[in-house]
Computed example of a mutant assay.
Amino acid sequence: MRTLARAKADSAVVNAIDVARAALLEDVDTADVGEHLGHEIEGERLVTHLFACERRGYAGWRWSVTVTRASRQKAVTVDEIVLVPGAEAIVAPSWVPYRERIKPGDLSPGDLLPVDDDDPRLVPTYSFGDDPLDQDAKAQVRHVARDLGLGRSRTLSPEGRELAAQRWYEGTGGPSAPIAQSAPDKCTTCGFLMRLNGPLAELFGVCANGDANDDGRVVSLDHGCGAHSEVRLAKKHEPQPLPEPLVDDLASDNYEGF
């Protein structure tokens, strides 16, 4: 196996700081160019000189000037000049596709969010074997499912169910929610808890307390809130009874003839 030797620093291009700065100032205002920050060896007789960028709004950015020297030539020439971010530069975040940026609550009335045919969260309602289905076969699955009265051509897969369970458990209806941390008891002992059927029945239920923040929402059995069905106030916190009303017997309307 052939190993390429590491490029050696060429003194002519390494010392060509003034050449690099002069070329930079032809395109950039003097006030935007700061001190020389060093150089990087790109290859044989190829060096990039870095200068601080003083332009407003570009803190941490650097001017990059790449210079080179042809073989057996003394003159140094400039290859390119670019503005590059440094380690502390403020840069735009990495691009995230629109589909992955959508969060619960982002959809407005009339918005459509189609699900891919190969979404791992969904599987055909009944098994069609392990062979992958092409587009025509997928259409047949949906058609046959409707003919058999199954209602849905696809249903939640084990992976989709696990993702939902993790999302619910770590969300506002799980045990780590602030309201659950200060609750007097757990949802599992609350009379307002409606049990679920299926694989998630041992972990989750639905809150049916109209006075609770989680009314109509999925909650974990170890979630909780102050609206628990068995909550009782301490006597010192109970409403104090009103005193007996007083009747003024000396009022003039209590005497006839006056």
Results as ranks from 00 to 15, higher is better:
residue 3 T to N: 05
residue 5 A to D: 10
residue 6 R to Y: 08
residue 9 A to L: 02
residue 12 A to G: 00
residue 12 A to H: 02
residue 13 V to K: 00
residue 14 V to F: 00
residue 15 N to S: 14
residue 16 A to I: 00
residue 21 R to H: 00
residue 22 A to E: 11
residue 23 A to V: 07
residue 24 L to Q: 06
residue 25 L to Y: 02
residue 29 D to I: 06
residue 29 D to M: 07
residue 31 A to T: 07
residue 33 V to D: 05
residue 33 V to S: 09
residue 36 H to T: 00
residue 36 H to C: 00
residue 37 L to K: 03
residue 37 L to Q: 14
residue 39 H to F: 00
residue 39 H to C: 01
residue 50 L to A: 06
residue 51 F to H: 02
residue 52 A to Q: 07
residue 53 C to D: 13
residue 53 C to A: 09
residue 55 R to H: 12
residue 57 G to H: 05
residue 58 Y to V: 01
residue 61 W to I: 03
residue 62 R to C: 14
residue 64 S to K: 11
residue 65 V to P: 00
residue 65 V to H: 00
residue 70 A to F: 11
residue 71 S to G: 10
residue 77 T to C: 09
residue 78 V to I: 15
residue 80 E to P: 11
residue 82 V to Q: 09
residue 82 V to I: 09
residue 90 I to N: 04
residue 90 I to H: 04
residue 91 V to T: 13
residue 95 W to M: 13
residue 98 Y to D: 12
residue 99 R to D: 10
residue 100 E to F: 11
residue 100 E to S: 14
residue 101 R to I: 06
residue 106 D to L: 06
residue 106 D to I: 02
residue 107 L to G: 04
residue 109 P to M: 04
residue 110 G to C: 12
residue 114 P to T: 03
residue 116 D to F: 02
residue 116 D to E: 04
residue 116 D to L: 06
residue 117 D to Y: 00
residue 119 D to H: 09
residue 121 R to V: 13
residue 122 L to Q: 07
residue 123 V to S: 03
residue 124 P to V: 03
residue 130 D to P: 01
residue 131 D to E: 08
residue 131 D to S: 12
residue 131 D to I: 02
residue 131 D to H: 13
residue 136 D to E: 12
residue 137 A to E: 15
residue 137 A to F: 03
residue 137 A to M: 15
residue 138 K to I: 02
residue 139 A to H: 02
residue 144 V to A: 07
residue 150 L to H: 07
residue 153 S to D: 08
residue 153 S to A: 15
residue 153 S to E: 14
residue 154 R to G: 02
residue 156 L to A: 14
residue 156 L to W: 05
residue 159 E to I: 14
residue 160 G to F: 06
residue 160 G to P: 02
residue 160 G to V: 07
residue 160 G to Y: 03
residue 161 R to V: 03
residue 162 E to Q: 15
residue 163 L to D: 11
residue 164 A to R: 15
residue 165 A to D: 13
residue 167 R to V: 10
residue 172 T to V: 08
residue 174 G to H: 06
residue 174 G to Y: 10
residue 175 P to Q: 04
residue 176 S to I: 10
residue 178 P to G: 03
residue 178 P to A: 09
residue 180 A to E: 09
residue 180 A to Q: 07
residue 182 S to P: 01
residue 183 A to N: 08
residue 183 A to K: 07
residue 184 P to K: 07
residue 189 T to P: 04
residue 193 L to N: 04
residue 195 R to Q: 14
residue 197 N to W: 10
residue 197 N to V: 08
residue 199 P to R: 04
residue 199 P to W: 03
residue 200 L to A: 15
residue 201 A to E: 14
residue 204 F to R: 05
residue 204 F to E: 11
residue 205 G to K: 03
residue 207 C to I: 12
residue 207 C to Y: 13
residue 211 D to N: 03
residue 211 D to F: 02
residue 213 N to D: 07
residue 214 D to L: 08
residue 214 D to E: 07
residue 218 V to P: 06
residue 218 V to T: 08
residue 219 V to E: 06
residue 220 S to D: 14
residue 221 L to K: 08
residue 224 G to K: 10
residue 224 G to I: 10
residue 226 G to V: 06
residue 229 S to P: 03
residue 230 E to M: 10
residue 234 A to W: 13
residue 235 K to N: 14
residue 239 P to S: 12
residue 239 P to V: 08
residue 243 P to A: 12
residue 244 E to Q: 11
residue 244 E to G: 13
residue 246 L to T: 15
residue 252 S to T: 07
residue 253 D to W: 14
residue 254 N to L: 12
residue 255 Y to C: 09
residue 255 Y to W: 08
residue 256 E to F: 11
residue 257 G to L: 09
residue 258 F to S: 09
